Amino acid sequence: MPAEQPGEPARELRKVARVVLLDPEDRILLLHGYEPGDLSDTWWFTPGGGLEAGESREQAALRELAEETGITEVELGPVVWRRICSFPFDGRRWDQDEWYFLARTSQTLTATGFACGHTELELRSLRGLRWWTSAELSAAHETVYPTRLAELLRTLLDEGPPGEPVVLAPEIV
Rank of each mutant, 00 (worst) to 15 (best):
V74M: 11
D90Y: 11
P36F: 09
L21F: 06
G48C: 02
R127E: 05
Q59R: 15
E64T: 13
I71K: 00
A3T: 06
I84M: 08
S56F: 00
F45N: 11
A139N: 03
G91W: 12
P162T: 04
R92I: 10
L29H: 04
L102D: 04
E159D: 11
Y145N: 11
L157A: 09
Q59G: 03
V16Y: 01
P78D: 12
R63D: 07
L21S: 05
L126N: 09
P78F: 00
A61W: 01
L153R: 02
G117V: 02
G91Q: 03
Y145M: 15
E120P: 14
P6G: 04
L22W: 00
P6S: 05
L51D: 13
A150H: 09
T110R: 08
T147E: 13
R148M: 11
P146F: 01
A10I: 14
A53P: 07
P6R: 13
A66E: 14
E58M: 05
G49E: 06
G113N: 08
G113T: 07
L102G: 01
R154L: 05
A61T: 10
E8L: 12
E55H: 02
S106K: 08
G91A: 09
L51M: 15
E52Y: 12
R14K: 08
E136L: 04
W132E: 04
W94D: 05
E55L: 06
W81K: 01
W132R: 03
A111F: 07
E151K: 13
G160N: 00
W99E: 04
R83I: 02
A169S: 14
R154E: 15
T119L: 13
T119F: 08
E52K: 11
L21G: 06
G117L: 06
E4L: 12
R82Y: 03
L21W: 05
Y145E: 15
R14L: 09
A53C: 08
R11S: 11
G54E: 05
W81Y: 15
R63M: 08
H118E: 15
A3H: 01
T105K: 07
A61R: 05
W44A: 00
A17V: 10
W43Y: 10
E55K: 10
L102R: 03
A66M: 03
E35Y: 06
G49R: 00
F87D: 03
D95S: 10
R148L: 13
R14D: 11
